[in-house]
Design a protein around this nucleic acid. Sequence first.
DNA 1: GTCTATATACAGATAGAC
DNA 2: GTCTATCTGTATATAGAC
Lengths: 212, 212
Amino acid sequence: MAEMMGVVAPSPEAGSKPAQILEAAGKLFLENGYGAVSMDAVAKTANVSKATLYAHFRSKDELFAAMVACECRNQMGTLSCEQVSRLDVADALRLIGRRFMLMLLSSKALAAYRVVVAEAHRFPELARAFYESGPAHSHAQMAAYLRDVDRRGVLRIPDADLAAEQFFGLLKVQIHTRFILCIDPQLPESEIERVVNAAVDLFTKGYAPDPR
Amino acid sequence: MAEMMGVVAPSPEAGSKPAQILEAAGKLFLENGYGAVSMDAVAKTANVSKATLYAHFRSKDELFAAMVACECRNQMGTLSCEQVSRLDVADALRLIGRRFMLMLLSSKALAAYRVVVAEAHRFPELARAFYESGPAHSHAQMAAYLRDVDRRGVLRIPDADLAAEQFFGLLKVQIHTRFILCIDPQLPESEIERVVNAAVDLFTKGYAPDPR
DNA sequence: GTCTATATACAGATAGAC
DNA sequence: GTCTATCTGTATATAGAC
């Protein structure tokens, strides 16, 4: 189980049986969790026999891991910070914030978070891989941006890594928890705006250079 | 399933069979999640026959719900804000922050969060009950405190509810995610201190009254 | 590689004696 | 109320034909 986690399996060519299976697995696992999904259900959804399924994935564990890896690949690059660097800092933070919120609260990201959290004990390597390619990835980009902002003297940020975490923390607030727990059905655009603006205001004021 | 969720079952008297069962269920479910725990295992751990188990809890679902409710009861009141109001605001926030972190990162709270998240789809009422007696409860206390702070003019907080969320967001940062995903094994006291101090600094500076 | 059919194991839940 | 023993369904995984 732990062995194949390091070796990132290549993405199967679209339309092939493995691709069908992974797609079905993604749909089912993300919606229902690991325990509640049977291999029968995966085979049926993928329009494939169970034997074929086992020909491509040696076990349910391996299929689950492959599916999470696949979903992680598909979610990447949502937070590219290229054109951001030419904007005013507050505007840039608002843009980053809005993007981050949309990504964070997308049903795919929420579902992936749920299943990985649920199985973190049994699949620690999987949880780590998810963390690296998700939260840690965004965090690193953000920290790099904030180091640049500090260098330009627009804000005074002594610890960019911590500040990056703080900024994302200000965005997630309770909303993330509420979505994860299925308390809120959907979020109005205005609410996102409100939270993002409040986060940017607090952040820029809190990290403003001393006026002397 | 949804029916008994509203009716909060009374806590069984200590030492009784139901109490033994709930204790065993807590230990097993919190450690392994809903799907991976069998009723056999619960019965065995509780030193009780399976028939006795079913005499007290009609189904696995009902046992799971009762166990979460029980754990929620046992975790409450960790954040009382009474003596806090006499402290300097920054000291008070540091105290609240440290307490919040210890509670948030306790193995019990993390385990409860994991299992509730994992089953939020199938047990929405349970997730809501957890949210109300956990995050929402702390949030309400914090918002009340911040309203008082605003009234006294020490800080200028236009939206205490949002500010309360922001403060907790600044505390959770990535640490919570890292613990939930079992990335970090344990947190040194100094790291808690660092995060709490940074949160309080940013919060107090960002919500400082305008100097005019 | 892909299928149908099946082996094997274990889960949740219950019957019936005490 | 509590136990031992068991029913019944369903899950993972495989055997063997095409």
